[in-house]
């Protein structure tokens, strides 16, 4: 059970002194400092056969002041998925560029630059990727208040005069009581 996974973890641990664990069958994760990530990725790609970069994702840990980047790579020979995780500062958010290891990383990095404002030194490509004419904070950051932005940019439709609170109307009709804990969801 999980021999392949344990073996991969052993190799990586001895090569880089990374921390890591076997999540489950066919899933291994390791985490390290951001400076080490390109080296780890290059090594697993060229020597261990993890040729396929599935994707790069970002998680915003606002309370910690960190972004977590997750690089997911896959080996077609071992049929194993490896997650390489790292945490970087939110401000300023700078991450080594890896698009010389995988060309397609360029697309993901441009998206992360636009949506989270993470800078990748040396990244080639237009600043504008998916959004058009965006001049606010990068929208996927958790401190970007999307409802406030929507309220000030778009028009809200006023509610109908005769709009009724559905639950109150129904409980009144059937002579029931709204329980105490649920009262806070009523309109007024």
């Amino acid at each position: 059970m999980l021999e392949k996974e344990q073996k991969l973890l052993e190799i990586l641990k001895s090569a880089f002194q990374v921390e890591g664990k076997v999540i489950r069958n066919r899933r291994v994760e390791i985490w390290d400092h951001k400076e080490m990530v390109p080296a780890i990725l290059l090594m697993v790609k060229t020597q261990l056969g993890y040729k396929h970069l599935n994707h790069i994702t970002c998680i915003d840990w606002l309370e910690e002041g960190k972004f977590q980047l997750v690089y997911t790579v896959f080996s077609h020979t071992d049929k194993l998925t490896l997650f390489v995780k790292t945490k970087i500062d939110r401000d300023p958010a700078i991450m080594p560029n890896i698009d010389d290891i995988w060309d397609q990383a360029n697309t993901y990095e441009r998206e992360l630059r636009e949506m989270y404002g993470i800078e990748f030194p040396g990244l080639v490509g237009d600043q504008e990727f998916i959004l058009e004419d965006w001049d606010e904070m990068p929208p996927m950051r958790r401190d970007f208040k999307t409802d406030v932005y929507a309220e000030k940019t778009f028009f809200a439709q006023p509610g109908r005069e005769d709009a009724q609170d559905v639950r109150e109307t129904i409980t009144k009709r059937s002579g029931e009581e709204i329980p105490e804990f649920a009262k806070k969801y009523s309109r007024d």
Binding site: L131, E136, P139, F144, T146, D147, Y149, A150, E151, T153, F154, F155, A156, Q157
Partner: peptide, 8 residues
Amino acid sequence: DSYNTINV
């Protein structure tokens, strides 16, 4: 409340 879709 989406930042990229218009409402009305």
